[in-house]
């Protein structure tokens, strides 16, 4: 009784969704709901939602190139740290370092800003990108939620 503190909450949620742009807002809502049990700062929730939105959008546009596919979202909460993994089985990234450069986009004709990874890096504490050509991409991000 009373031994469990807010920061010790452990939880995990996994979501599979069709790679459709209308599911981007669902992904944001899901991650916001997931962290809500920690009563987080509004600014932290916005940061995480934005980073998730970027990663899911990348999976849909670049991973699957707007063709049918599945986006996998794994949310984990450990000691007040959220770990978000967004995975696709799409085409993969040729050159990860180049893809992560600010303003680099492989699709300039589609009005993509090339700022997706820059936003993810800025809004989360850490980001790891794993990708294999023809196999898919996995983005793992963590963020420590501020103590209120």
């Amino acid at each position: 009784m009373g031994e469990i503190t807010e920061n010790k909450v452990e939880n995990r949620v996994r979501i599979e969704m069709d790679a459709k742009s209308r599911n981007e807002s669902f992904a944001r809502l899901a991650v916001a709901a997931f962290v809500s049990e920690l009563d987080p700062l509004v600014s932290d929730v916005i940061d995480i939602k934005t980073a998730v939105s970027e990663a899911v959008t990348n999976a849909i546009i670049h991973g699957y190139e707007d063709s049918p596919g599945t986006v996998y979202i794994d949310l984990k909460l450990t000691d007040g740290v959220i770990t978000v993994t967004i995975k696709d089985d799409g085409v993969g990234i040729d050159d990860i370092s180049r893809a992560m450069e600010p303003l680099y986009t492989s699709k300039p004709e589609e009005e993509r800003s090339g700022m997706g990874f820059t936003v993810m890096e800025a809004f989360m504490d850490s980001i790891i990108v794993r990708s294999e050509k023809g196999r898919g991409t996995e983005v793992i991000m963590t963020k420590k939620l501020s103590d209120v």
Partner: peptide
């Protein structure tokens, strides 16, 4: 209520 980098592309366009 929310904007991600897709908004940047749209505005620059």
């Amino acid at each position: 209520t929310f904007m991600d980098s897709s908004g940047i592309g749209m505005l620059i366009g």
